[in-house]
Design a protein around this nucleic acid. Structure first.
Lengths: 219, 219
DNA sequence: GTCTATAGCATGATAGAC
DNA sequence: GTCTATCATGCTATAGAC
């Protein structure tokens, strides 16, 4: 959308470059140059580089997280007393992010990549951008997974949720340019295909038995 | 080790800062300052900032990947004709990285974090640093997983390996300062505990049935 | 092998005209 | 709201003395 107003154009380009190269590796000059805007416009509209990232991130993550919570509401209303189904919980968590990609085309793909990247961001200030946005989702889904997996220790559930998030973040970041693991050939992965496969994988992982199948495989 | 020679001190500090803040966010001045070395020393010993990262990375990843391949050799020798056991393959891939942490203490923990971070590096030049080092491991383990999961399509195996790597990378990056998913309380996770849990999770994921349990959970 | 000094350029941010 | 010009600082890298 090269005809959008300056503020939007900056956000669009910023989204692309932050997603492709990362926050630190992208300069405001890169962004304003590509957006056909003046360098000073970033500070005028967003106060700072961090402000720009924040605005970009919230544009997508707000709707995605609202959708996640809506689906979770529906699941809990239907399950009411019984513990919720793990695969449904996982799908409620993952599908809205992948759906946004389908709905928004290139825009959505860029957001997915940026979101994946933010999960490995360790800068405290940038990280709290992400954590603030996820506070309610984290709390609600954490509780739901604990209820759905009552036989697991709390810490074990927490670990497994981290694995789920890691697998998701990696998929969001790379599914556009995924490399074959054996050869280095690139291939694109359809978001729907990646989602279905990821749900299967993580649902099996979350519900895995606590006691290892055999304790001799250790060597 | 504040008494090591300059070259080693630079590598140690570089490892710490690259792991904590990322490559782009760390300057050579940060490194040489903390290492009590001269700014020019980096270029003298390592030619460039990239050269330093490369040296740091190879110091650990070489031994880890050699160990991975040794264990894989043993598994394939024992299984010979039959397809190898998936959980053993996973353990062969994951355990050497976690073992290095146990053996090397703080050094190993820093390396784990750096390694986790490299998996979400998209800079082509830095990324090929990682891919070059992993070429043989990727090829051998890719083949082994395909043999161990003959009922799955090649692309499905490849996707699942990516999920495995994503879960691993996230765990390597965060296990030192893992946040509870519900509350934001930090807690440290013992590497052994994380490894065992990760193996269980990913073994279940890799061996998950292809056909979804029920196709109505879609909504 | 280590130092100082500096080249040469990029950075985020802002002041102030229009 | 957009521009130019510029500040102050940071960056990687190198030349050359010791």
């Amino acid at each position: 959308m090269p005809n959008a107003d300056t503020k939007t154009r900056i956000m669009d380009v910023g989204e692309t470059l932050f997603a492709e190269r990362g926050y630190e590796a992208t300069s405001l000059r890169d962004i304003t140059g590509k957006a056909g805007a003046n360098l000073a416009a970033v500070n005028y509209h967003f106060q700072s580089k961090e402000g720009l990232l924040s605005a970009i991130f919230q544009r997508h993550v707000g709707p995605v997280n609202r959708e996640r919570l809506l689906v979770l509401d529906a699941i809990e209303a239907r399950a009411s007393k019984r513990p919720p189904n793990v695969e449904k919980l996982i799908r409620a968590f993952l599908a809205p992010a992948f759906a946004r990609r389908r709905e928004r085309g290139a825009d959505g793909a860029r957001f997915m990549q940026l979101a994946g990247r933010m999960h490995s961001e360790t800068n405290e200030r940038l990280r709290s951008l992400l954590l603030d946005q996820f506070e309610e989702v984290a709390k609600r889904f954490g509780k739901a997974f604990s209820r759905a997996l009552p036989h697991l220790a709390r810490d074990e559930v927490s670990l497994r949720v981290h694995f789920l998030i890691g697998a998701m973040a990696h998929t969001l970041l790379w599914s556009d340019t995924m490399l074959g693991f054996e050869s280095r050939k690139r291939r694109n992965v359809e978001p729907e295909e990646a989602l279905e496969s990821l749900v299967r994988f993580t649902a099996a992982g979350m519900t895995a038995p606590v006691a290892p199948r055999s304790e001799e495989g250790r060597r």
